[in-house]
Design a protein around this nucleic acid. Structure first.
Lengths: 202, 202
DNA sequence: TCCTCCATGTTTACAGGAGAAACTTATGCG
DNA sequence: CGCATAAGTTTCTCCTGTAAACATGGAGGA
């Protein structure tokens, strides 16, 4: 009865399998308190096997975060490429995609911006985060060039909108955007307030 | 040489002492990975003593977060009560106080908004957070009454500014407001963008 | 005054986790 | 064919969280 599981000694693609298991647990529990041993167990390997692919538990977490940034970028890019009429509409679409991503992947989103995913010690993670930030930056520049956004320093627009969107996402997944506090559609409402400040008033 | 430490069997105020030690470690390490045993050790008591005051480790963390919200509220209130001329100026002062608090207490600020400080299972923590949010809300209402802020739904203003300030704080303590990306004074710059959208344009 | 209760400590015990080290297996390459 | 090596496993040590049983000493009643 010991050989029903025909697992070959070598898994074949354990690294990817571990990441998949960990992403599943992150999505299920909405936190990353899982132990590395549990990940190994669910993947069907010994508790020491993961160390052949990740130096330590945090290295796995950083890889999850990196994947999160890639996926977030894809979501935003997709939302923007729907043939929307105005730059303002594309901005709103991207922002809502970001908040939507956070709401659908709260654990992952939190991890991406937590201190457990330290970007200062992981160039790949840092680059992935910067690439996603770059999507926003390009949108803002385009908007300034086509006259949609005010010609103030793009850095001010970037800081304001990055903070705004990230703040909305964090508050949304913390259930702090309850209707009785901030109305029924706080995300578009507050984006409109911001855009009123960002857009040319002519 | 064993009785130099004249510690009486009963500490006297262990609860407060543990909180103090934990706050110190949080400030030093800028994270809350410290173990409960380490907190006990540094406070000079046995590793089980903390359990007489906190059901588990997370209960201590929630108490730290609660204290954080109280202190943040104090900072904001203090910043607003400096006889500033306009509501807009008071808003900016409060927002900068919030970001400043986050920068000076990055670990604590992160903890306050992390899932390890679960507000849904701790009424005291929830209330403390709501009290601090209330400061912002009152400021916005006052500003609408005196005509500083546009008479749109206060919930939209609240969501926008809460998100903005929180987002700025989170980005600031994550070192994601680097000068080459968002200019030299991103906080006032982005607050101005937001305020341009919030304030009456007459 | 003395005794007893109870909140607040301590000691002991145990189940798990992180990670290192040493061992095993299979696989690709000369 | 034979072996170096990547990728697994086993075993080990140290640490943690937390429960349970025990100790202490101060406060309040007889």
């Amino acid at each position: 009865m010991s050989e029903t599981k025909n697992h070959p000694y070598h898994h074949g693609d354990l690294r990817r399998a571990l990441i998949g298991t960990a992403l599943d647990m992150l999505a299920t529990d909405q936190n990353w308190t899982f132990t590395l041993r549990e990940v190994a167990r669910r993947t069907g390997v010994s508790h020491a096997a993961p160390y052949k692919h990740f130096r330590d538990r945090e290295m796995l977490l950083r890889e999850l975060a990196r994947i999160g940034f890639v996926r977030l970028g894809e979501s935003m890019t997709e939302a923007m490429s729907l043939g929307l009429p105005s730059t303002r509409a594309r901005f709103t679409a991207a922002a809502q995609a970001c908040v939507g991503f956070a709401c659908q992947n709260p654990g992952l989103y939190r991890l991406m911006f937590s201190s457990d995913a330290d970007k200062t010690i992981d160039p790949q993670l840092h680059d992935a985060a910067m690439d996603t930030f770059g999507i926003l930056l390009r949108l803002l520049r385009d908007g300034q060039q086509d006259g949609s956004f005010r010609p103030v320093a793009v850095s001010a627009l970037a800081a304001a909108s990055w903070a705004q969107v990230h703040g909305l996402a964090m508050l949304a997944i913390s259930n702090q955007l309850l209707e009785e506090k901030v109305g029924s559609a706080p995300v578009p409402a507050s984006l409109d307030v911001l855009l009123d400040g960002m857009c040319r008033s002519d």
